[in-house]
């Protein structure tokens, strides 16, 4: 990285550290921070959409749809979330391959589950065995994002379902008195008003989402935990220019601090958003704000 880094064995102290922290592998570590941020940026809106869909399905008048919505919102209640993470990654992968198999190789006559193997034709493999490395990595990341979205969608559905029920019943009745249809009352009255009730739950969910990003490591994505583990291990002089003993403690401490800062910043920002949103609302917090200003 720097010009003086050409011969690391002569370096001392801070200049050694500056060279050490800018090696190619460390750059990978810094890039993986963006992987985490990308995951958050994609998962949060997707999970919100899933949650919204499931929450409205749970309120539906059509029974099977309501069952689906309720079933989806309750999957997270009794079972550890990490079990879902591990389950969905394999299950989704197999579901995709199975579907492609049905479409691409209709004349395949052998069973797909042969004892303890899952066999699909070559054309149905995902990603194709001929595709380059980055496709494999992107596919893995995509599966992880989908898994996160499904699990957090269920959490969000719980929050939104509660928020929809928290909107005063009189509001809907008024809308119906004005002759609005069920659909109109939902979109024009219920949805705009539910957010202020949903926000505490959603901001809590955001914190939980941040704190669950290290689980990416379990899903096989090369995230910060992976690189911290990799870089912190003992390095001997034979394989690297920067030999060091086992530094796992330091690396994981850095991760700990990273997450603490991240959650702290989020907390401050979300508090501001909440203050902003409750302004002028007919809730206890909004009332307190009005009194404080007066």
């Amino acid at each position: 990285m720097f010009s003086y880094c050409t011969d690391p064995s002569t370096l001392e102290g801070l200049s050694w550290l500056s060279c050490y922290l800018t090696t190619g592998k460390h750059v990978n570590l810094y890039i993986s921070v963006f992987v985490v941020l990308t995951l958050l940026a994609i998962t949060a809106p997707t999970a919100l959409v899933f949650g919204f869909g499931a929450a409205s399905a749970a309120r539906s008048k059509f029974l099977p749809l309501r069952w689906f919505g309720k079933g989806y919102t309750s999957i997270v209640r009794g079972v550890p979330d990490i079990a879902f993470f591990l389950f969905f990654v394999i299950a989704l992968d197999q579901a995709f391959e199975w579907m492609r198999h049905k479409v691409k190789c209709p004349d395949w006559d052998q069973p797909i589950r042969q004892g303890i193997d899952f066999v699909v034709c070559d054309a149905a493999k995902l990603p194709l065995s001929t595709s380059p490395q980055w496709v494999h990595e992107t596919y893995g990341f995509f599966l992880a994002v989908l898994t996160f979205s499904i699990v957090f969608g269920a959490f969000a559905a719980n929050v939104l379902y509660g928020a929809m029920r928290a909107v005063p019943r009189a509001q809907i009745e008024t809308a119906e008195a004005y002759g609005m249809t069920h659909r109109q009352a939902f979109w024009r009255i219920l949805v705009p008003q539910m957010w202020v009730y949903a926000l505490p739950g959603l901001s809590n969910l955001w914190m939980v989402l941040i704190k669950s990003t290290p689980l990416l490591f379990l899903l096989g994505v090369e995230d910060i935990v992976y690189w911290a583990k990799e870089l912190g291990g003992t390095k001997t002089a034979r394989f690297t220019d920067y030999p060091h003993p086992n530094w796992h403690v330091e690396y994981f401490f850095a991760l700990l601090v990273f997450y603490l800062c991240f959650t702290k910043v989020s907390e401050v920002v979300l508090d501001r958003v909440m203050t902003r949103l409750t302004k002028g609302q007919a809730t206890a917090a909004g009332e307190a704000q009005r009194k404080a200003a007066a």
Binding site: P214, V225, A228
Partner: peptide
Amino acid sequence: RGSPLFIQFFFAYACFLS
């Protein structure tokens, strides 16, 4: 409460190991 339990486990394990 502010850090992931997963990282806490890793950190504690590394600490105990050293």
